[in-house]
Amino acid sequence: MQNVIEISDLSFRYPQQTDDLFAHIDLTVGKGEWVALIGHNGSGKSTIARLIDGLLVPNKGTIKVCGLQVNEKNVWQVRKKVGMVFQNPDNQFVGANVEEDVAFGLENQGIARSQMQLRVKKALKKVSMWEFAKHEPANLSGGQKQRVALAGIIAMKPEILILDEATSMLDPEGKKDVIQIIQELNQQENFTVISITHDIDEAALAGRVVVLNDGKILQDATPKKVFSRGEKLLSVGLDVPFSEKLKTALKKEGIQVPENYLTKKGMVDWLCQYVSKK
């Protein structure tokens, strides 16, 4: 697998602070992977995303995106490879209406208008927002605005999609819609996805979960492995999947539960077996 992101020995500190937010971080992401980045607020997850996109400059270490080192010279090339969706749906909507917002990135690239029209239409259809093309942001729900933001990225045809808590301000339906589109992009179009999230069910969709705590990578493994250490996640202020919660509750009542992580289905299977064995 080809690596699209290579971070080595990365350290960062905000100018007004005395301590490093994180230090000596190494992380690689392969093409087509879906990596969930979790950690409590202030653990530096969003900062890493901004460093990858060259929106912030590291104190030490290097980042390579699709083989390009992120520096002043390459930054605009890098930004063509990376699409970012941020947390607040309102604060990233630049255009006066839906289609113009999708076109914003294309306008920046100086793409011809006829070409833009095609790409905007295609991207909006992909996120099921084409019928809203002329709508103004004030008349859209949060979920719809985030879908427009995704369309803006799809139209740019980048390699990597970074979601910086993109679903955290949405209602359950909006969340579901956005996640579904991301799944499609990852599976059908081979987008590399990095999702920064607090939603443990969203993290469970990833192929890899990276846990960030106290300026270090605490764990970098499959969701199954990471979730099997439920107590550890709770101790660094994170959530665990429901089946883990149930396991903890059963353990408290004196039931012998399996050590490894079980999905919900796995947990149902295990309970059925447990009862029939008795």
């Binding site: 509750a249 009542e253 009862v275």
Partner: peptide
């Protein structure tokens, strides 16, 4: 809640 569920499950078992 998971606690209520656990208690009921144990009764069942």
């Amino acid at each position: 809640t998971e606690e209520e569920l656990a208690i009921q499950l144990i009764q069942r078992i």
